[in-house]
Design a protein around this nucleic acid. Structure first.
Lengths: 139, 139
DNA sequence: TGATATATGCAACAAAGTTGCAAATCATTT
DNA sequence: AAATGATTTGCAACTTTGTTGCATATATCA
């Protein structure tokens, strides 16, 4: 784990620091998406708010994480898969938000279907978010 | 127009006031979605910030408008179609965000395709947002 | 027109995000 | 292992965004 974290950071030309290691660890541990507030809570206020913002921003820039659109004004971040490279993401999978536990889960094996747009529109990226009850909350 | 606005408000048991009329007019005029900031700008700071928030909230409650998920931490609102009733929305159409003019457009005639979820997941609502270049910016 | 209910604006506050800068930490070379 | 230079961090101050309580103003309806 420790080794994997260091490897990911170095691979992306980021220096290995305490906050980056800790925040990346959180993403690797959680199978879902994290909002800024989640990270602050889970790190136990160990790091400055500003540092968390900047760390997330640099992870975004490097393509380590991606954002998930939500209707409730809270950006959520999730780990990108290995085939994500800087500036060019392949996270065309469906995201699931549970209305019970409010966890956001990447459904890596459910790809976003293509839609036919009206004439004159050119698609670049498609995001799909499903709201409902997740596996753990349904049982 | 004036008559239509009054009608919509009365139909939804909302008293007809200056701010509600003006804000509803903005939605009817724009064919896209509006963020809170857009509304403040377009009304020319005529109304208090708080009033705009509350007006949007009551429009949401009554099902006159709906929210559109975004990845950039800004709630966007768009008019619901006539078949929207209180608490029960039928806005299962695709939303388009132009990366040039950054307008958000409701593609009313493009319905969100159904996806097959993994076992154990139960879908309630599906949102689809397409990013790209819109009709006006492409030409 | 007057009574009542509702909506508005103000003030004060809470939360979320940004920027500049000095001190601390990391990577690298010797 | 220590020194150097580049990067990162934490602090402070600030801006933006959203919320709440309450007195005043406005709309609705008899």
């Amino acid at each position: 784990m420790e080794i994997e974290i260091d490897h990911i950071l170095k691979k992306n030309q980021l220096s290995v620091t305490g906050s980056r290691k800790k925040i990346l660890e959180l993403f690797l541990q959680s199978n879902g998406a994290l909002a800024h507030a989640d990270i602050e809570k889970k790190t136990g206020e160990k790091f400055d708010r500003v540092t968390v913002y900047r760390t997330l921003q640099s992870f975004l820039d490097k393509g380590i994480i991606h954002t998930i659109p939500t209707a409730d004004n809270s950006i959520r971040y999730a780990l990108c898969k290995d085939d994500c490279s800087e500036g060019h993401h392949h996270d065309n999978h469906v995201h699931f938000v549970c209305s019970k536990c409010s966890n956001t889960i990447c459904l890596d094996h459910v790809t976003v279907p293509t839609v036919k747009l009206p004439a004159g529109f050119k698609a670049q990226e498609v995001q799909m978010v499903v709201n409902g009850v997740c596996k753990t909350c349904l049982s």
